[in-house]
């Protein structure tokens, strides 16, 4: 393969990561919308779409392996491919968390709503926005932006604490709410984990730029 062709492949690989990223962003958004609006069809859609996300991840992984085998990449080429291999795992897992939220939306579908959801959608927005910007930083090779995104994980952790405390009070006041409240805690946990996964992606961005493995922010959870 000529160098120009290799460059095109490498570019194509990163475009694929962006496509996968936007699929995952949608999954986060749709899952929360399904939960909020009790839209069971949308929840089922998120669950079905997850298989597409998994397949896309496999495709990208295969392309990485092909490039490693045929091109023996080194230096920044190698770092990009190693970063992609890791980023797609995190993306797939974030999608799994979204799928988990969609499943909870289905479980809660027949139950009366516990309360209007405010902080959970806020967490979802935060996680989705962090994810979007982390991939943007990857494409722009912006280590500084990636480091900043990691710090924002604290805000998601704080929202998680808040949701957790609030739901505990519901359960304490009325044991009949325990099932529903617990499920919402699972949702909060899914979102908290998703934001953590974004910090992993950010660490890969820093690695791509500097060649150094750094643990940037250690999450409370």
């Amino acid at each position: 393969m000529l160098r120009e062709k290799f460059d095109r492949y490498l570019q194509g690989l990163q475009d694929e990561v962006l496509i996968l990223g936007s699929m995952v962003e949608k999954a986060i958004g749709y899952a929360m919308e399904a939960l909020k609006k009790r839209d069971l069809a949308l929840a089922r859609q998120v669950i079905t779409d997850d298989t597409l996300i998994n397949r896309k991840r496999m495709d990208i992984e295969e392309k990485c392996v092909e490039l490693i085998v045929t091109q023996q990449p080194v230096a920044s080429d190698l770092r990009i491919i190693v970063a992609v291999l890791n980023i797609i795992i995190d993306l797939e897992r974030i999608a799994d968390h979204a799928e988990g939220t969609a499943k909870i939306a289905l479980m809660l579908g027949d139950e009366p709503p516990l309360k209007p959801l405010i902080d959970l959608p806020r967490m979802a927005d935060r996680a989705r926005d962090m994810l979007h910007r982390s991939l943007d930083a990857f494409i722009r090779r912006d280590a500084e932006a990636a480091r900043k995104i990691c710090i924002e994980d604290d805000e998601v952790d704080n929202l998680y604490d808040q949701v957790f405390r609030e739901l505990l009070t519901f359960m304490a006041e009325d044991p009949k709410t325990i099932t529903r409240a617990t499920r919402l805690i699972w949702v909060a946990h899914n979102l908290e984990r998703s934001a953590d996964r974004v910090t992993n992606i950010c660490e890969r961005v820093v690695f791509t730029v500097t060649g150094k493995m750094e643990e940037i922010g250690v999450s409370k959870y």
């Binding site: 290799f6 230096a75 920044s76 080429d77 060649g211």
Partner: peptide
């Protein structure tokens, strides 16, 4: 290990990655 993963000179990088 360093030279092939994070070369410091752009010309080294260009050479080892076949540019």
């Amino acid at each position: 290990q360093e030279l092939f993963t994070r070369p410091q000179d752009k010309r080294t990088e260009d050479y080892i990655s076949g540019r």
